[in-house]
Nucleic acid binder design. Structure first.
Lengths: 113, 113
DNA sequence: TCAAAGCGCAACTCATAGTTGCGCGTGTGC
DNA sequence: GCACACGCGCAACTATGAGTTGCGCTTTGA
């Protein structure tokens, strides 16, 4: 019934904007290391590494050691599950709001114009 | 292209699990005050009031003073916009993942079983 | 063998969520 | 009309977590 019944850990993992960017970058590049990602982010390698720990803990990414480097790539199934949760919460709100969605779309169109 | 292009303020507002619960409660009850909501939450009235300030700042709720009470209710259009953003991010990931979604669903089924 | 790259660990700083305490306005009962 | 209780806002304090800095270990390449 409530939107809070979703896996809160998974949600909070993808709730962080930096982690969403990291997921996008990993999806775009196929894989990456903490150093690689930090080069394209406004935070240090250490901060990126901490985020990777969080993402790894919920199974969204998986790291493999290759020599002195550690490559991370997205767990596509888990990310699909996360995406489904996002859509589920949005859909739940939509359902509660009835058929107001068209109003929001018109407002969005209005703001874009 | 990237999922980070959404309104980050609106996203972070709904990213907090407590605020999502508050939105749910306001949607279910029609309206509520900081005291009312705090009675059903594990935090104090003051903390709820701060969350309401955040939600008000992004337009998700609107407060009206009635005597010595201050009633808050959901801005349905703005919440619909937020829901649309959630679904958009989920859909964007789905698109990047190709048609892997069915795999996630099967895994989800597997975990439920 | 030695310098540089890449990483992990630990201590520190800083921002923010949450709490506590208090005072002010607003109803309500006598 | 007046005192008391309720509801709220403001301000100071605390605690937790994100981010940085510094250091040492391992691996790679010349």
């Amino acid at each position: 019934m409530s939107a809070t019944s979703v896996d809160d850990e998974l949600w909070s993992a993808i709730g962080d904007p930096t982690r969403r960017r990291m997921l996008d970058m990993l999806l775009a590049g196929g894989a990456g290391t903490a150093t690689t990602l930090s080069a394209q982010l406004p935070i240090t390698r250490q901060a990126v590494a901490k985020h990777l720990v969080v993402l790894d803990a919920v199974g969204l990414v998986h790291g493999t050691s290759v020599g002195r480097e550690r490559h991370f790539e997205v767990d596509r199934a888990q990310l699909a599950k996360a995406a489904a949760q996002l859509e589920a919460v949005g859909a739940a709100w939509d359902a509660r709001l009835g058929r107001i969605k068209r109003i929001a779309e018109s407002i969005q169109r209005q703001r874009n114009a």
